[in-house]
């Protein structure tokens, strides 16, 4: 899809999945504009945004695909997942069902993309401490079980959103020019991220994303 562009930027497609109103749009909006407000419209079908991310050693272009969460839209999802490099599967830590459903979302991604995709499991809404229904340990365990990355965020408080996207960027396959053993690279990524996960593990509200 980027064949005709002249830009040398490496482009990556990120697709955001997860149940209705778990905060997919909020996470994206926090990342894009560093803001949160209470007047989001429900996402119908798909929304598309893009942003350039400047990393220490390189610059990448992220194409963010925000999707409708309702089950009824499932038949559209394969078209949206196609060609994605990263799938961000979001659940709401105050909504156990949305957590349970992540297995199906992840399955959906695997079916469409096999192992050519990096998957992040994201527990959102950590600001709602007293409504929590899914512990961070559960989230972490599930991520390990399904062999995906894991992080908890609060789009509202701005917690861990930048960390999430830094992790995503760190896990991206190298720029096209860099030839590298893919398997090796995946291992490496997993190592890095698990340390990040540990860092991020005690997320008391105080540990506001330092970036």
């Amino acid at each position: 899809m980027s064949g005709t562009t002249t830009s040398p930027l490496a482009k990556y497609k990120l697709v955001f999945l997860g149940d209705q109103s778990v905060g997919k749009t909020s996470i994206i909006t926090r990342f894009m504009y560093d803001k949160f407000d209470n007047t989001y419209q429900a996402t119908i079908g798909i929304d598309f945004l893009s942003k350039t991310m400047y990393l220490e050693d390189r610059t990448v272009r992220l194409q963010l695909w925000d999707t409708a969460g309702q089950e009824r839209f499932r038949s559209l999802i394969p078209s949206y997942i196609r060609d994605s490099s990263v799938a961000v599967v979001v659940y709401d830590i105050t909504n156990r069902q949305s957590f349970l459903n992540t297995a199906r979302w992840i399955q959906e991604v695997r079916t469409e993309r096999g192992n050519d995709v990096i998957i992040f499991l994201v527990g959102n809404k950590t600001d709602l401490i007293d409504k929590r229904q899914v512990s961070i340990e559960e989230g972490d365990a599930k991520a390990r079980e399904l062999n995906v990355h894991f992080i908890e965020t609060s789009a509202k408080a701005g917690l861990n959103i930048k960390a999430l996207f830094r992790k995503i960027a760190a896990s991206l396959p190298g720029m096209e020019s860099v030839t590298q053993n893919k398997q090796e690279q995946m291992e490496e990524v997993k190592l890095t991220t698990s340390t990040v996960t540990l860092d991020a593990k005690p997320p008391p509200p105080a540990s506001t994303c330092s970036c």
Binding site: D19, Q20, G69, Q70, E71, R72, R74, S75, D92, T94, N95, R96, Q97, S98, N101, L128, K131, Q133
Partner: peptide, 18 residues
């Protein structure tokens, strides 16, 4: 080809954060 391949849809969640 597409017709009827998709199961009946149900809304995602039973647990409702109040």
């Amino acid at each position: 080809a597409k017709g009827g391949s998709v199961g009946r849809g149900r809304a995602g969640s039973a647990a409702r954060g109040k």
